[in-house]
Amino acid sequence: MATHLMVRRRDLLAASAAAVGIAFSAVSVSTVVAQSRTKTTYIMTGFTPGLVDGLARLVAAQMKDYAETIVVETRPGAAGRLAVQAVRAADADGSVMLLAPLGFMTLYPHVYKTLKYEPQDFTPVSIVASSPTLVTVGPKVPGDVRTLADFVAWCRANPTEATYGTAGVGNTLHFIGAMLGRSAGFGFLHVPYQGNAAIQDLLKGEIASAIMPIGSSLGLVQSGQLRALATTGPRRSSFLPDVPTMAEAGYPSLEDLTRYGFFVPAKTPADTVERLGRSIHEALSTNEVKSGMTGMSLEIESISTTAFAQLIGSESERWKAIVQATGFTPID
């Protein structure tokens, strides 16, 4: 009888200990998960609310497994450089990240005299989207100009009218135009604007052409108010399948995509970078993000962290050569 009771008591103690162990294990796991998700995370963008801000919000809404609260903060100024500097100075713990065009890392170092950051200050996490540039002409150019070859011929015949508008000085759009004029052998005057103002002046006939992201004039091209001559992508855009690429038009060296990617401070732990990258890639696979990208005239693009870093290196060399070839003088 005593032996029987002792066994039962021993069994009860063992079961109790196991239950306590399981309880502590459950609390420990849930605590770790909670701790990894409770801290507010910030996505910085370098522009006023618009395309990049909207892209950040679209992807962030599907990253609940990474953080419970993700705040998208616009930090415009200095052509986006203020946002980059803010992320550079942030804690390297995955709580602050940058969403920006790759040109911030691949072009800006060759354009600005003094840059308060270096590409090596950041770890590239993932590209999320890309968009080709579109060359369009408006009412200033005769209606029978329908191809890029036609436009080049018109520019040569009308040198004082050969102008193109972009969203500022020293960006990829600016240099695509400069290289088109250089490659085709005609003077192509650059007229810089802020935001999408170039499209408005193009419609009014103030400038002959615009070199802008495809989304800035897609509706106007589809409605026939503007004529699209070429896109800079490696293949025809799904949004304008009838418009040839620069390569098809005879200028393969002008192939270019504006890619948007996430970056974190360089010393961010590898496991945090991996977790963030996984969360981003899972977000890109959702129907919400896919349909949202289509609405923004963007195409989803995702590559590994290693491939992303290699791309930044090769693109930096490419843009360095382009800037030097155009004779551009670095600006403050």
Rank of each mutant, 00 (worst) to 15 (best):
M296F: 10
I312P: 04
D242R: 11
V169I: 14
D65R: 12
G195I: 02
D91T: 10
G313I: 04
A309E: 08
D93P: 10
Y66I: 04
A17G: 10
Q194D: 15
L202N: 04
G170I: 00
T232I: 00
S279F: 04
L226A: 03
A61L: 06
R9W: 13
S130P: 08
T232Y: 00
R236K: 11
T268C: 02
G50F: 09
R57T: 07
S216N: 09
P159W: 14
I199W: 00
E317M: 12
L276I: 05
E73N: 11
R275P: 03
A230F: 03
A79H: 10
K320D: 15
Y260D: 10
D11V: 13
S279A: 15
A67L: 04
H174C: 07
A60F: 01
E317K: 13
N196T: 13
V96N: 11
N171A: 10
C155R: 01
S253M: 12
G313R: 14
E282P: 09
G224W: 02
V243F: 05
T163Q: 07
I127N: 09
V52Y: 06
R278S: 14
S209F: 01
T106Y: 00
L311Q: 15
A15H: 10
S183H: 11
E68C: 11
T329C: 08
G54F: 01
